[in-house]
């Protein structure tokens, strides 16, 4: 019994220490005078591997989710003779919820796990240590460009996701099931607001980007540098980041639309 209480206490202390480590890592990576000449090419390189390479999974998922939304929405709305509202239904679900959330989940699985594994391996193969011994701060050189790349690319990916999703809804609703073309777009335009819907979606996406990228980098940077350690850290990135996204989504939705 006492062992269990002690174990619980240790788990709590460890998680607090982990959060502290993660905080210190982020602060040290981000604070300091920017060296644009050096950091710009690094950022571009990471934007490519984190953002551009995630495009395919984002576009394909967006298209299918939009198509499913169109199909499901139509079968419900048509019962009430309200199939003209398919446009705003698809657009609002994507912009407010599905775009930011599903993008963040896919991003955690596609880019977050890659970040954790890459940094974990750099640690295991002593590349991080050797950077330090060369008087190059690995936090500035490795962590910082990856963080900004994740932070900038996820909202863009979420917008692409929503746009493609709306097109998917249009394909199914208008082209296939015969909702009126003009009504689909004009009712959508009348009902979607810039501030309430689009901007809030972007804010959500920025929060998710911050959290997911941060978790992925922290898990990689502080992993146990063995093969088991790296595989655990990678799994933990996907699990922790996904749960954090879903939990935060509820909080943000309550604050924005509640």
């Amino acid at each position: 019994m006492l062992d269990r209480i002690a174990g619980l206490g240790k788990a709590v202390l460890d998680s607090i220490a982990g959060a502290g480590q993660a905080m210190v890592m982020l602060l040290r990576a981000l604070i300091g005078k920017p060296q644009l000449r050096k950091s710009w090419p690094l950022l571009m390189q990471q934007m490519y591997s984190v953002g551009v390479l995630s495009l395919i999974i984002i576009v394909v998922s967006g298209l299918f989710i939009g198509m499913v939304l169109g199909l499901q929405g139509y079968t419900i709305l048509v019962d009430f003779g309200a199939e003209q509202s398919l446009g705003p239904m698809v657009a609002l679900s994507l912009l407010r919820e599905l775009g930011p959330v599903v993008t963040a989940l896919l991003f955690a699985g596609r880019a977050g796990s890659a970040l954790t594994a890459e940094i974990g391996l750099m640690k295991a193969t002593e590349q991080l240590s050797s950077l330090e011994m060369m008087a190059v701060d690995p936090l500035r050189r490795v962590i910082s460009p990856r963080f900004w790349a994740g932070f900038y690319s996820m909202p863009l990916l979420a917008l692409i996701f929503s746009a493609v999703g709306i097109y998917g809804g249009y394909l199914v609703g208008v082209r296939w099931l015969g909702v009126d073309d003009g009504a689909f777009w004009s009712v959508m335009q009348a009902n979607v607001e810039w501030g309430q819907d689009i901007l809030n979606g972007i804010i959500k996406s920025l929060v998710f980007a911050f959290v997911v990228t941060w978790i992925a980098l922290h898990k990689g940077y502080h992993c146990v540098p063995t093969s088991v350690g790296i595989s655990r850290a990678t799994t933990s990135t996907v699990v922790t980041a996904s749960l954090a996204v879903l939990g935060l989504d509820f909080v943000l939705t309550a604050l924005m639309f509640g």
Binding site: T125, E126, Q127, S129, S130, M133, M134
Partner: peptide, 10 residues
Amino acid sequence: MSMLFQSGAL
């Protein structure tokens, strides 16, 4: 100073 790591760490 510099250090040659066991794995090379390239």
